[in-house]
């Protein structure tokens, strides 16, 4: 790691005054003075240190957000919505009784991520803003499209862990499994701008596919801080489930993960379904076909199977990742049945 100056921000105002750059913009500007002079905000620091150790990022200054108490809280809002501070760790998410009771798929997704060591440090904000794990993107030897180069090496190369949907010039998958669950719950992110202006954006709109921007995975603006994730109050009859499948069960990235949120009526019919696929596309992939296949239906093996097939319709796998299609079909079906309590 190259040297940098270090500041610990005591409060949000101080962090905003630091005038931070986004990691994506800094990497896109490298090499050059804009990258060398960049001020980067640090949450848990897991991805930040990884990028720096790989020689992909060398900021001039790091501003630590760990000392800002308001970013580390989980609080129920009037009306039942839940506000999760950006500095809440994955371990806290996985263990929080309220999240486990109301947003089970999120607790499952967070608890299944990485290792206990990482979950104790990695934060929800950092998890959502981490950069992709694509080995070409993470390699200083490959000047890939996402880093400003001319090509996506994955299309012609080793793409077994890459996207099966939405590879518009870049075949990354979004690295956050928490995001898979959050999109299924229609979560939003709260962003505070340099002048203190707050805006709330649906997470699904905040995360950007390569067709919108090839070099960044989200709409975070320079100087802006992701302060919280907002989960809407759970509607009656909502049940959720998250399933991940790695090649290994211990500390491995998923080859597929699926979050299902079902709103079941008293008659047992599904009023509304959220079905989201992670590790499938450059952003969490909302399987609208599956959602509409479930709407109005009673959940059973057959409906779950049809929805799973609908979820994978239109997949465009690459040379080495077509195996993900049947894996996803199995996971979607199982997660639907799991959410309905029929697993």
């Amino acid at each position: 790691m190259k040297g940098f100056a270090w500041t610990s921000a005591p409060d949000l105002a101080a962090a905003l005054r630091a005038g931070s750059a986004t990691v994506a913009a800094t990497m896109a500007a490298a090499p050059g003075p804009a990258a060398a002079n960049a001020v980067i905000l640090k949450a848990g620091g897991i991805d930040l240190l990884d990028l720096m150790k790989e020689g992909l990022l060398a900021p001039q200054r790091i501003v630590n957000l760990r000392g800002i108490p308001e970013l580390g809280r989980i609080a129920e809002e009037p009306g039942g919505a839940l506000r999760i501070g950006a500095m809440v760790t994955l371990a806290q998410l996985a263990g929080d009784p309220l999240i486990r009771a109301r947003y089970g798929a999120l607790a499952q997704a967070a608890g299944g991520s990485a290792s206990p060591q990482i979950r104790h440090v990695a934060t929800l904000g950092g998890n959502l803003l981490q950069r992709p794990r694509c080995w070409y993107f993470r390699s200083i030897h490959h000047d890939c499209a996402r880093k400003g180069g001319r090509q996506c090496f994955a299309f012609m190369g080793e793409n077994q862990y890459h996207a099966i949907f939405g590879q518009y010039g870049c075949a990354i998958v979004h690295p956050s499994t928490a995001a898979t669950a959050l999109v299924a719950f229609d979560a939003s992110v709260e962003l505070v701008g340099a002048r203190g202006a707050r805006r709330t954006v649906a997470l699904e709109n905040f995360l950007l596919g390569p067709e919108v921007d090839l070099q960044r995975e989200n709409a975070l603006a320079p100087g802006e801080i992701l302060t919280a994730v907002l989960l809407p109050a759970p509607k009656p009859g909502v049940r959720s489930f998250h399933l991940r499948q790695g090649e290994l069960d211990s500390f491995d990235w998923p080859i597929a993960d699926v979050a299902v949120v079902l709103e079941l009526g008293r008659d047992g019919a599904c009023r509304r379904a959220g079905v989201v696929l992670g590790a499938a596309a450059p952003v969490p992939y909302r399987a609208r076909g599956a959602e509409s296949a479930l709407a109005g239906q009673r959940i059973a093996e057959g409906t779950a199977r049809s929805a799973a097939i609908a979820a994978l319709a239109g997949a465009t796998p690459l040379a080495k990742n077509a195996y993900k299609v049947p894996v996803f079909e199995a996971l979607v079906r199982r997660a639907i049945l799991g959410a309905a309590g029929q697993a």
Binding site: G45, I46, A91, Q117
Partner: peptide
């Protein structure tokens, strides 16, 4: 040195963390 093997595990606040990924 990337948090992937956990050989560097120590406790901070009595929970295990990867000391290679902690400044």
């Amino acid at each position: 040195d990337r948090g992937a093997c956990s050989a560097c595990t120590v406790w901070i606040d009595r929970v295990p963390v990867a000391s290679c990924m902690m400044l």
